[in-house]
Every structure is written in structure tokens, then in C-alpha cells.
């Protein structure tokens, strides 16, 4: 059996090269980092009434959420669909590499991107948006958003396992953008029509953003535990679904 050291090296290399390979794809990096930042500067800072900084703070949460969703969903969905189509995933599976190293590598890449987005948006909020938060709020928000990548990574994984490499980008966009809008990530959820507000409960992004807003006491006032529970249930459901699909599509144990 593999020694602990060697498997650790596999995990490290896998993660490193996944990150390197994504990092060398400008078509992925630029939109992933620039979209949330530009959107935030535009809607959260520029069009925000000056003075209280509270709209900039509100939008900081929602656009952070918007930002971290993208890389998680796209990296998983597109690269897994493409690795599947190209046979690269099959080759890896026949090597002694543990499947978990492959998935954790993708997760690590998503987290690095999430962290970069958080750093960018936090900087913008602090420098231009006059956002002033307590240290525990800044840190709490950053940690929450990092952890919050999990359900979106799972959605990406599910799509990556089921879609062709050609269909994946389109479908992810088709899910990503409406989900962001309907969860109140672009406009505050309270400004959406009543029906849409109710539909917001369907999306993990709504619950993640509400948890984030809760840190700033700007949420809609539902129980944090409820949001947390719904996120966990969604994640658990997605995990189960991924396992099922994984067995069917890849035929692994």
C-alpha cells in the first residue's frame, strides 16, 4: 500500500498542477476574478449612496457569494466534463492516483480562486466602498464564503459528470446567472417580486448570502440555523446524487 508520505505528495502535486493548468487558462481566470470585482465596484460602490457604507457592505456579501460560486461551478463542471470526454480521467483512474486526490485538487483550486475573489472584493470594499466591519465580521465572512464553495463545487461536479464537454459551459451559465439573480446576489432580494423572493429559498446561494448578511445583521431575519440546515441538506443531497451518478457514469465502486 502507498505510504502516507507518498499519498500526501500525490495530493499536493495533483492540487498544484490543477491550479497551474487552470491558472494558465486566461479564458477562465479573467472572468472569474474580474466579473465579481467589476460588478461589485459598479453596483456596490459606484451606484451606492455615499455616507453609511451599508449598501456597499450588503453588496460585499452578495457579490462575494456571486464570486465564489463561479470558479467552484465552472472548474468542476467544465474540467471534469472535458477530462471525461478526452479520456484523461480514465487514464488517471487506471493509475494508482486516488479519485479523492483528483476531486480535492479541484476543490483546492476553487478555494484559491474564492480566496482571491474575497481578497479583491474586500480590498475594493475597504478602499472604495467605505465598508467598515469588525475583525470578526471580516474574518467570519471570508471563512463562510470559503466553506460556502462546497455546495457549488458539488453542483459543478454533478454537471461535469453528466454533461458533455461541449454542453457544460452553456448549462453552467444557464444555472449560475439566474441562480445568482434569483438569490438576490445582484439586487437585494427584498427588491425582487414576491414570488421570486419565495423561490429564492430553493437556491443554496440565497442561504449562503443570508448567512453572510447575518454576520452584518443585514439578513432578512430568518434563523441562521435554518439557512445552515438547508445548505447542509442541499450539500448532502448533492453528494448522494454525485455518488450515484459517479457510479453510473464512471463505473467506479
Amino acid at each position: 500500500m502507498t505510504s502516507g508520505m507518498t499519498s500526501l505528495a500525490i495530493y499536493q502535486k495533483e492540487a498544484w498542477y490543477d491550479l497551474v493548468s487552470v491558472w494558465r487558462t486566461p479564458g477562465f481566470v479573467l472572468p472569474a476574478l474580474a466579473f465579481p470585482l467589476v460588478f461589485y465596484l459598479f453596483f456596490g460602490v459606484l451606484f451606492s449612496p455615499s455616507g453609511s457604507g451599508s449598501q456597499a457592505a450588503y453588496m460585499l456579501v452578495t457579490y462575494s457569494c456571486f464570486g465564489i460560486m463561479g470558479p467552484a461551478m465552472f472548474n468542476f463542471a467544465m474540467s471534469i466534463a472535458s477530462d471525461r470526454a478526452q479520456g484523461w480521467l480514465t487514464l488517471k483512474r487506471l493509475s494508482p492516483m486516488p479519485v479523492s486526490a483528483y476531486l480535492l485538487a479541484k476543490m483546492a483550486t476553487s478555494l484559491v480562486f474564492a480566496l482571491l475573489i474575497i481578497l479583491l472584493l474586500f480590498s475594493a470594499a475597504a478602499l472604495f466602498g467605505e465598508v467598515r466591519l469588525y475583525q470578526h465580521q471580516w474574518l467570519g465572512l471570508a471563512l463562510l464564503m470559503l466553506l460556502g464553495t462546497v455546495p457549488f463545487a458539488l453542483i459543478g461536479l454533478l454537471l461535469g459528470l453528466t454533461l458533455s464537454d461541449k454542453a457544460a459551459p452553456g448549462v453552467v451559465n444557464l444555472l449560475y446567472l439566474p441562480m445568482a439573480f434569483l438569490s438576490g446576489l445582484w439586487l437585494p432580494v427584498t427588491m425582487l417580486p414576491h414570488l421570486m423572493q419565495q423561490l429564492a429559498w430553493l437556491w443554496p446561494s440565497y442561504h449562503l448570502s443570508q448567512l453572510g448578511l447575518k454576520l452584518l445583521a443585514m439578513d432578512q431575519g430568518h434563523a441562521a440555523l435554518l439557512h445552515l440546515a438547508l445548505l447542509l441538506v442541499t450539500s448532502a443531497g448533492l453528494t448522494l446524487l454525485c455518488l450515484l451518478v459517479f457510479r453510473r457514469v464512471i463505473g467506479a465502486k
Binding site: Y17, Q86, T90, L91, P96, M97
Partner: peptide, 28 residues
């Protein structure tokens, strides 16, 4: 085991040396 399949492509943005480094790490 060693396996060479007819596959379309490895991740195109990694270099030859990097692919070799990655695969070499899999084996004891």
C-alpha cells in the same frame, strides 16, 4: 499496471515535464 489508451488530450496547458512529474508522483 501500465496503460496507454487512445485519448484525445491531456490538459493542454501543462508542459511535458509537468505531466511527467505528476504521473511519476503516483507510483512508489
Amino acid at each position: 499496471l501500465g496503460v496507454m489508451l487512445q485519448i484525445g488530450s491531456l490538459p493542454a496547458t501543462l508542459t511535458v515535464a509537468e505531466h511527467c512529474d505528476l504521473f511519476a508522483s503516483y507510483y512508489l
